Computed example of a mutant assay.
Amino acid sequence: MRRTVVLVVALTLALATAGVGVWLAIAATAGNTDAAPSASSSPSASPTAPVTADDYCYVEAMIYYRVKEQELADTLLRKQGIDAGASGFATGIAARSEDELEDLRAWYLSWADARPAEPPADGPCGGHGADHAQMPGMPSWSILQGFVDAQHPDAERRFAEILQAQNAGMIALVTLILEGDPHPAVAGSAEEVLKQAEADQETLQGILDALP
Protein backbone atom coordinates (compact mmCIF):
# COMPACT_ATOMS: atom_id res chain seq x y z
CA MET A 1 0.00 0.00 0.00
CA ARG A 2 2.80 2.43 0.92
CA ARG A 3 4.54 1.70 -2.40
CA THR A 4 1.34 2.43 -4.34
CA VAL A 5 0.81 5.73 -2.52
CA VAL A 6 4.39 6.80 -3.22
CA LEU A 7 4.08 5.97 -6.92
CA VAL A 8 0.74 7.75 -7.24
CA VAL A 9 2.21 10.86 -5.62
CA ALA A 10 5.21 10.71 -7.95
CA LEU A 11 3.05 10.48 -11.04
CA THR A 12 0.74 13.20 -9.77
CA LEU A 13 3.71 15.54 -9.41
CA ALA A 14 4.95 14.57 -12.88
CA LEU A 15 1.62 15.43 -14.45
CA ALA A 16 1.25 18.62 -12.44
CA THR A 17 4.57 19.85 -13.80
CA ALA A 18 3.95 18.81 -17.42
CA GLY A 19 4.53 22.36 -18.62
CA VAL A 20 8.16 22.19 -17.49
CA GLY A 21 8.75 18.57 -18.41
CA VAL A 22 11.15 19.34 -21.23
CA TRP A 23 13.13 21.69 -19.01
CA LEU A 24 13.50 18.95 -16.41
CA ALA A 25 14.56 16.55 -19.15
CA ILE A 26 17.36 18.83 -20.36
CA ALA A 27 18.45 20.29 -17.02
CA ALA A 28 21.46 18.00 -16.86
CA THR A 29 22.97 19.66 -19.93
CA ALA A 30 21.85 23.25 -19.34
CA GLY A 31 25.28 24.34 -18.15
CA ASN A 32 27.25 22.27 -20.62
CA THR A 33 28.82 24.47 -23.29
CA ASP A 34 29.68 21.35 -25.31
CA ALA A 35 26.01 20.36 -25.62
CA ALA A 36 25.40 21.88 -29.07
CA PRO A 37 25.35 19.23 -31.82
CA SER A 38 28.03 19.28 -34.48
CA ALA A 39 29.14 17.19 -37.42
CA SER A 40 31.48 15.32 -35.08
CA SER A 41 28.88 14.63 -32.36
CA SER A 42 26.28 13.19 -34.75
CA PRO A 43 27.08 11.40 -38.03
CA SER A 44 24.00 12.86 -39.74
CA ALA A 45 24.25 16.37 -38.33
CA SER A 46 24.93 19.28 -40.66
CA PRO A 47 25.83 22.56 -38.92
CA THR A 48 24.93 24.59 -42.04
CA ALA A 49 21.49 23.04 -42.67
CA PRO A 50 18.56 25.29 -41.69
CA VAL A 51 16.57 24.25 -38.62
CA THR A 52 12.80 24.64 -38.94
CA ALA A 53 9.94 24.74 -36.45
CA ASP A 54 9.11 21.16 -37.48
CA ASP A 55 12.65 20.07 -36.58
CA TYR A 56 12.29 21.67 -33.18
CA CYS A 57 8.85 20.13 -32.79
CA TYR A 58 10.32 16.69 -33.41
CA VAL A 59 13.04 17.17 -30.81
CA GLU A 60 10.68 18.50 -28.16
CA ALA A 61 8.06 15.82 -28.80
CA MET A 62 10.61 13.00 -28.70
CA ILE A 63 11.97 14.26 -25.37
CA TYR A 64 8.46 13.95 -23.94
CA TYR A 65 7.99 10.48 -25.42
CA ARG A 66 11.33 9.20 -24.12
CA VAL A 67 10.98 10.71 -20.64
CA LYS A 68 7.51 9.17 -20.31
CA GLU A 69 8.90 5.86 -21.55
CA GLN A 70 11.54 5.95 -18.82
CA GLU A 71 8.95 6.78 -16.16
CA LEU A 72 6.81 3.83 -17.22
CA ALA A 73 9.80 1.48 -17.17
CA ASP A 74 10.93 2.69 -13.73
CA THR A 75 7.41 2.24 -12.35
CA LEU A 76 7.20 -1.34 -13.61
CA LEU A 77 10.64 -2.21 -12.22
CA ARG A 78 9.60 -1.11 -8.72
CA LYS A 79 6.88 -3.75 -8.62
CA GLN A 80 7.30 -7.26 -7.22
CA GLY A 81 6.97 -10.55 -9.12
CA ILE A 82 7.13 -9.04 -12.60
CA ASP A 83 7.54 -11.36 -15.58
CA ALA A 84 11.19 -11.65 -16.68
CA GLY A 85 10.46 -10.69 -20.28
CA ALA A 86 8.68 -7.49 -19.29
CA SER A 87 11.25 -6.51 -16.67
CA GLY A 88 14.11 -7.16 -19.10
CA PHE A 89 12.46 -4.97 -21.71
CA ALA A 90 11.86 -2.21 -19.13
CA THR A 91 15.51 -2.36 -18.03
CA GLY A 92 16.64 -1.99 -21.63
CA ILE A 93 14.35 1.00 -22.18
CA ALA A 94 15.87 2.91 -19.28
CA ALA A 95 19.39 2.73 -20.74
CA ARG A 96 18.39 3.13 -24.38
CA SER A 97 16.23 6.19 -23.83
CA GLU A 98 18.96 7.96 -21.88
CA ASP A 99 21.40 7.51 -24.77
CA GLU A 100 18.93 9.04 -27.22
CA LEU A 101 18.02 11.85 -24.84
CA GLU A 102 21.65 12.98 -24.82
CA ASP A 103 21.42 14.04 -28.47
CA LEU A 104 17.86 15.37 -28.13
CA ARG A 105 18.82 17.59 -25.19
CA ALA A 106 21.74 19.03 -27.14
CA TRP A 107 19.54 19.85 -30.14
CA TYR A 108 16.84 21.27 -27.89
CA LEU A 109 19.29 23.75 -26.37
CA SER A 110 21.14 24.79 -29.50
CA TRP A 111 18.04 25.01 -31.75
CA ALA A 112 15.98 27.16 -29.35
CA ASP A 113 15.69 29.99 -31.92
CA ALA A 114 13.55 27.71 -34.11
CA ARG A 115 10.93 27.16 -31.41
CA PRO A 116 7.55 28.55 -32.55
CA ALA A 117 6.07 31.34 -30.43
CA GLU A 118 2.73 29.50 -30.22
CA PRO A 119 1.86 25.78 -30.33
CA PRO A 120 1.32 24.88 -34.01
CA ALA A 121 -2.24 24.24 -35.15
CA ASP A 122 -1.14 22.05 -38.05
CA GLY A 123 1.91 20.16 -39.28
CA PRO A 124 3.61 17.28 -37.41
CA CYS A 125 2.92 18.83 -33.99
CA GLY A 126 -0.54 20.19 -34.72
CA GLY A 127 -2.83 19.52 -31.76
CA HIS A 128 -0.05 18.53 -29.36
CA GLY A 129 -0.86 21.41 -27.03
CA ALA A 130 1.58 23.73 -25.29
CA ASP A 131 3.31 20.92 -23.40
CA HIS A 132 2.83 18.00 -25.85
CA ALA A 133 0.55 16.28 -23.31
CA GLN A 134 -2.01 15.81 -26.09
CA MET A 135 0.38 13.98 -28.41
CA PRO A 136 -0.97 10.73 -29.87
CA GLY A 137 -0.34 7.81 -27.53
CA MET A 138 0.41 9.81 -24.39
CA PRO A 139 -1.40 8.10 -21.48
CA SER A 140 -4.12 9.89 -19.55
CA TRP A 141 -4.08 10.28 -15.78
CA SER A 142 -6.65 7.49 -15.32
CA ILE A 143 -4.58 5.09 -17.43
CA LEU A 144 -1.43 5.94 -15.49
CA GLN A 145 -3.19 5.50 -12.17
CA GLY A 146 -4.49 2.10 -13.23
CA PHE A 147 -0.94 1.07 -14.12
CA VAL A 148 0.45 2.32 -10.80
CA ASP A 149 -2.14 0.33 -8.87
CA ALA A 150 -1.75 -2.85 -10.94
CA GLN A 151 0.18 -5.94 -9.89
CA HIS A 152 1.38 -8.99 -11.84
CA PRO A 153 0.17 -9.92 -14.42
CA ASP A 154 -2.08 -6.91 -14.95
CA ALA A 155 0.87 -4.55 -14.44
CA GLU A 156 2.80 -6.08 -17.34
CA ARG A 157 -0.32 -6.00 -19.51
CA ARG A 158 -0.99 -2.33 -18.82
CA PHE A 159 2.69 -1.46 -19.29
CA ALA A 160 2.80 -3.15 -22.71
CA GLU A 161 -0.49 -1.63 -23.85
CA ILE A 162 0.52 1.89 -22.82
CA LEU A 163 3.83 1.57 -24.65
CA GLN A 164 2.13 0.11 -27.73
CA ALA A 165 -0.10 3.18 -27.91
CA GLN A 166 2.86 5.48 -27.35
CA ASN A 167 4.91 3.72 -30.02
CA ALA A 168 2.01 4.10 -32.47
CA GLY A 169 2.05 7.82 -31.70
CA MET A 170 5.79 8.02 -32.30
CA ILE A 171 5.45 6.15 -35.59
CA ALA A 172 2.78 8.61 -36.73
CA LEU A 173 4.95 11.59 -35.74
CA VAL A 174 8.17 10.45 -37.38
CA THR A 175 6.30 9.41 -40.53
CA LEU A 176 5.00 12.98 -40.87
CA ILE A 177 8.47 14.37 -40.16
CA LEU A 178 10.10 12.16 -42.78
CA GLU A 179 7.47 13.10 -45.36
CA GLY A 180 8.65 16.71 -45.07
CA ASP A 181 12.14 18.13 -45.49
CA PRO A 182 13.74 17.59 -42.07
CA HIS A 183 17.19 18.66 -40.92
CA PRO A 184 19.67 15.85 -41.71
CA ALA A 185 20.15 15.13 -37.99
CA VAL A 186 16.40 14.90 -37.49
CA ALA A 187 15.99 12.66 -40.53
CA GLY A 188 18.61 10.24 -39.21
CA SER A 189 17.10 10.22 -35.75
CA ALA A 190 13.54 9.78 -37.06
CA GLU A 191 14.56 6.82 -39.22
CA GLU A 192 16.11 5.12 -36.19
CA VAL A 193 13.04 5.87 -34.06
CA LEU A 194 10.79 4.38 -36.72
CA LYS A 195 12.79 1.14 -36.90
CA GLN A 196 13.01 0.86 -33.12
CA ALA A 197 9.32 1.58 -32.55
CA GLU A 198 8.26 -1.01 -35.10
CA ALA A 199 10.56 -3.62 -33.52
CA ASP A 200 9.29 -2.71 -30.05
CA GLN A 201 5.70 -3.25 -31.14
CA GLU A 202 6.53 -6.88 -31.91
CA THR A 203 8.37 -7.31 -28.60
CA LEU A 204 5.49 -5.79 -26.64
CA GLN A 205 2.99 -8.03 -28.39
CA GLY A 206 5.17 -11.00 -27.43
CA ILE A 207 5.05 -9.85 -23.79
CA LEU A 208 1.27 -9.64 -23.96
CA ASP A 209 0.94 -13.05 -25.62
CA ALA A 210 3.08 -14.67 -22.90
CA LEU A 211 0.97 -13.37 -19.99
CA PRO A 212 -1.50 -15.70 -18.29
Rank of each mutant, 00 (worst) to 15 (best):
G129D: 10
T29A: 10
Q201L: 14
G123Y: 12
A16I: 05
A30G: 02
Y64S: 06
W141K: 10
P47G: 04
P136E: 06
A14L: 11
A84G: 03
A185F: 12
E69K: 02
A117K: 07
A10N: 13
S87F: 00
E191Y: 14
D131K: 07
W23K: 05
G81M: 01
T4E: 10
L208Q: 08
V193Q: 03
V67C: 02
A61P: 07
S97K: 05
I26R: 08
Y65G: 08
S41L: 06
G137C: 09
E118S: 15
L7V: 09
A133Q: 13
A18V: 07
H132Q: 13
M135R: 13
V5W: 06
V20S: 06
A10I: 09
E102V: 14
G206K: 12
K79P: 00
A160N: 12
P116Y: 14
A112W: 13
T52Y: 00
T203M: 04
A27P: 01
A187L: 11
V6H: 08
P119G: 09
L104C: 11
E191S: 13
Y108V: 07
R66H: 15
P153R: 00
R78F: 00
L7Q: 12
P43T: 04
A106E: 10
A45Y: 15
G206C: 04
M62G: 03
R66G: 14
D34A: 07
D54H: 07
I177A: 05
D83I: 00
Q205Y: 09
R66P: 09
L104I: 11
I143Q: 15
D131Q: 10
A86Q: 03
L72Y: 01
F147E: 00
P182C: 10
L194Q: 12
M135W: 04
L72M: 03
Y108H: 15
G146L: 04
R158K: 09
D55C: 05
R157P: 08
L15T: 05
S142K: 08
S142N: 10
I63A: 05
E71H: 10
F89T: 01
D113T: 14
V22M: 01
A121L: 15
A133I: 15
T175I: 08
G127V: 05
G146M: 05
E118H: 12
A150H: 06
S87I: 00
S46G: 11
A18M: 03
Q134D: 04
S140I: 09
L204F: 10
A25S: 07
H128M: 13
A160L: 08
